[in-house]
Write a protein that binds this DNA or RNA. Structure first.
Length: 805
DNA sequence: TTTGCGGCCATATAGACAGCATGTC
DNA sequence: CTATATGGCCGCAAA
């Protein structure tokens, strides 16, 4: 089908596609058009990566906009949101505007309401639904990218529930779900009442094979000699082999450490094939990487990059990841070894994909378990760059004849697993049941269960009673924690007639009045006739929790923690409190650390909020210590310890540290709202702890870091020469300021931001003798002889007790 | 005595969304 | 119950 034949798109769109070099639709795209996506029909497209899914989405959304509608594109990752936004921005050319909204991007409702296309993460959409964003009811088309993630235990239910809610909110909503090829795309299509396009077609050929010994054997029977020389590893031979043809490679491994080790080893291979120009560009890139953060990880990565290779995993800071991904796409980096992050993330195609480790450690399985076929297919799908490579190659590594057979069976010829809803898991239900009640999607237990009928879970489960009983458990939990109230009927399922008659006497009036109200809730109408209906309402606290996007269990923990505090909670107390909630991804204890943190526990026990589990309850006590470890990490960060030191001491990557800090910021912000809600007297303590973790500073620097351009390091240096806040910056000796801040521009900017009237640094000489000014000596005077950052790296914690008297 | 290397044992193991109100070194 | 890479440690042999 030719692009010219498409109708119903905004004027100028066809021209745009032509300019992009798109003339003929790929067969799956043509099928999608025939299925009616241009007329607003729903569709599930289960097609391989890089076979034009985005075009299917674009056609659906643009035709919806042309009909006067508005479209939403749901992505699983923030990084993908920006990637898609950049892609859709090109439509501005013909007047179609795009907005993004994710947790850390700006987003005002009014602003989004004016956009034609909106890109958002599934959690953000869920949050928008909970907060009742008006423009949601204007949507006429929703695209859900990577919809197979519904299978994900943690985040799948959010996507599932969100899609169900959007569809209930907007009857007739065009739903376009894009999925990897999965075992049961037809079930998803049934659920969404959509047509199905299910195909293995790819624009460039994908050769799948297994390397064993000195030979690479492909699924079509062809083979290729790839001899392993000397003591080199299989992957080294494969990387070298394809590099000599000018192709890049992507090696998937099972752990971060493996990724780093492989990159180090393989950089010896890539290093041999670099031109001088590439070398100099790579060395610039390496400098950029070192500048991102002053940590071991950063240095190791830079060292590899200089030689044309890189590793990629979640321990990297996001800037690291972006730099590496971009350089790889620009063909500057020849090889990346990665954990599965890369398979699900932004588009980073390579000529040859090597899936080295196909087993992964899984403690729940008691050891190593094979990767899902779906997952391996996602990795293999990264092979082949459209327009650049004649074909892509995906290679698995075997070290025995038997393993080679197994790999062919399992991954080359094997079918991917079906997608299974994980909604019935209690943690997921806790959150979504509360949200469903709080945002008015269900007002009775029966209405709630009926809403659940609209989920994939219901369409897949054979015994509906499971969902019902878990739902009742969850309702029980929510009620006992004061998030919801239940009235009328009986409090649990399976109640008898006699129970009801007793209750009915007192609740008859309430039920009758609810009857009329229910009629505008639509779906509840049928149940309302049943006098035994249990009315569900969210309490004020429940509403807050739902809007804050907290797991109810997190909220309960925080509320209890704050209520149990007799004295003003310390920062550590609050940090440990949020670290033990399910919304904080825990650092686990390494061997030997149970002792270290056991000691810390006895030392700081009075600061911790709530009751510690008994030491004899092994598992729970371990968890408690693990959250103490996370809390201590946050305290150290807020005590101005160097990033380098923290990543080293806690054996985490810079990305992990930032992730923890980020989460802590979010949870403490939420904790402040909760403190307000329950009338706790500790809101100020919470706010201060949050501010400290946000900027990574001690209390005395909080004023300084509020000045734009001043972060934790500059603030400390200013403080050490006696400048304690914006007011001091306005009156301070410019020579002193300049001596501390180095650059004239920086100094002038900061003075301006502090509100100084004459910020200019023209003609100001940095003071070399800081004798004449008030120098802080109470924290160890050596700091004042500042000549950079060397020398004064002595741990600050020794002074912690001196600092706050 | 020092240095280098192989073998053995212990150890550790992927990922990352969200509120709210503004901006690092 | 399953695997595998790494790093520390030890003992041995060569320098």
């Amino acid at each position: 089908m030719n692009v010219e034949e498409l109708s119903g798109l905004p004027p100028g769109a066809l021209e745009h596609f032509r300019d992009e070099g798109i003339e003929e639709l790929y067969p799956p795209q043509a099928e999608a058009v025939e299925a009616g996506i241009l007329e607003g029909d729903s569709l599930v497209a289960a097609v391989p990566t890089a076979s034009g899914k985005t075009m299917i989405a674009a056609l659906s959304m643009l035709s919806a906009v042309q009909r006067g509608g508005k479209a939403l594109y749901i992505v699983p990752l923030r990084a993908l949101a920006s990637e898609k936004k950049a892609e859709f921005d090109a439509y501005e050319e013909f007047g179609v505007t795009t907005g993004v909204t994710t947790g850390n991007y700006e987003s005002t409702d009014e602003w989004l309401a004016t956009k034609d296309l909106i890109v958002a993460t599934s959690e953000k959409v869920d949050s928008l639904v909970r907060n009742g964003a008006d423009w949601l009811s204007d949507l006429t088309c929703v695209v859900s990218d990577e919809v197979h993630l519904i299978d994900d235990r943690n985040r799948g239910p959010t996507l599932e529930v969100t899609l169900a809610k959007l569809r209930e909110l907007n009857p007739g909503l065009q739903t376009v779900a894009l999925s990897a090829t999965v075992g049961n795309a037809d079930e998803i299509a049934d659920w969404l009442e959509a047509d199905l396009v299910d195909t293995d077609w790819r624009p460039i050929d994908l050769q799948m094979g297994v390397h064993y010994g000195n030979a690479l054997e492909f699924h079509d029977g062809s083979t290729r000699e790839v001899p392993v020389e000397g003591s080199e590893k299989q992957e080294a031979a494969l990387v070298r082999d394809i590099l000599q043809e000018g192709g890049s490679s992507l090696v998937f491994v099972s752990s971060r450490r493996n990724a780093e080790a492989a990159a180090r080893r393989l950089s010896q291979v890539s290093s041999r094939e670099l031109t001088d120009e590439e070398r100099s560009k790579l060395s610039e890139l390496a400098d950029d990487i070192r500048n991102v953060s002053d940590t071991e990880t950063s240095k190791d990565l830079a060292d590899c990059v200089e030689r044309g290779a890189a590793f990629h995993h979640a321990g990297l800071a996001s800037e690291h990841r972006t730099l590496v991904e971009d350089a790889f796409r620009d063909r500057l980096l020849k090889m990346i070894s990665a954990t599965p992050t890369l398979a699900a993330g932004v588009n980073t195609p390579a000529r040859r994909v090597i899936v080295r480790d196909w087993r992964r450690f899984d403690p729940t399985a008691g050891g190593m378990s094979p990767l899902d076929v779906l997952e391996v297919h996602q990795m293999m799908g990264r092979a082949g760059r459209p327009g650049l490579d004649p074909y892509g190659e995906a290679v698995l590594l075997a070290n025995s004849h038997d393993e080679r057979e197994e790999l062919f069976e399992r991954y080359v010829w094997g079918e991917p697993e079906p997608v299974r809803s994980k909604l019935a898991a209690e943690p997921a239900l806790r959150t979504h049941v509360l949200a469903t009640i709080a945002s008015g999607f269900a007002r009775t237990r029966e209405g709630l269960l009926e809403f659940m009928q609209a989920t994939l879970y219901a369409s897949q489960s054979t015994e509906g009673s499971r969902l019902e009983s878990v739902t009742d458990d969850v309702l029980e939990y929510l009620e006992s924690n004061d998030f919801i109230e239940r009235e009328g009927g009986a409090s649990t399922a399976g109640s008898t007639e006699t129970d009801q008659t007793v209750e009915a006497a007192t609740d008859a009036f309430v039920s009758a009045s609810e009857l009329t109200e229910d009629s505008d809730a639509g779906s509840d109408g049928a149940q309302a006739a049943d006098s035994a209906a249990v009315d569900l309402t969210a309490t004020s606290l429940g509403h807050t929790v739902s809007r804050l996007y907290l797991d109810p269990m997190t909220a309960a923990e925080i509320v209890h923690g704050l209520e149990s505090a007799d004295d003003r909670p310390t920062a550590l107390g609050l940090y440990q409190l949020i670290s033990r909630t399910p919304d904080m991804y825990e650092l686990y204890l390494r061997s030997g650390e149970d002792e270290t943190f056991g000691e810390l526990f006895y030392e700081r026990e009075p600061e911790l909020l709530g009751d510690a589990p008994s030491e004899y309850e092994d598992a729970r006590f371990e968890d408690w210590l693990a959250s103490l470890k996370t809390g201590k990490l946050l305290e150290d960060w807020a005590d101005e310890q160097d990033e380098d030191r923290l990543t080293d001491e806690y054996k985490i990557g810079p990305g992990d540290l930032r992730g923890k800090v980020d989460t802590a910021e979010w949870l403490l912000g939420a904790a402040e709202s909760l403190a307000n809600e329950i009338g706790s007297e500790w809101t100020v303590a919470v706010r201060e702890a949050r501010a400290r973790v946000e900027h990574g500073v001690r209390e005395e620097l909080l004023e300084l870091v509020s000045v734009r351009g001043v972060g934790r390091k500059r603030a400390r240096q200013l403080y050490d020469v006696g400048i304690e806040g914006p007011a001091d910056l306005r009156t301070a000796d410019k020579g002193v300021v300049l001596a501390v801040l180095k650059g004239e521009k920086t100094a002038a900017n900061i003075l301006e931001n502090a509100g100084r009237e004459d910020p200019s640094m023209d003609g100001v000489e940095p003071r070399t003798d800081l004798e004449g000014v008030e120098v802080r000596t109470d924290r160890g005077g050596s700091r004042a002889t500042t000549d950079g950052n060397g020398g004064t790296d002595e741990p600050d914690d020794d002074q912690a007790s001196l600092g706050d008297f």
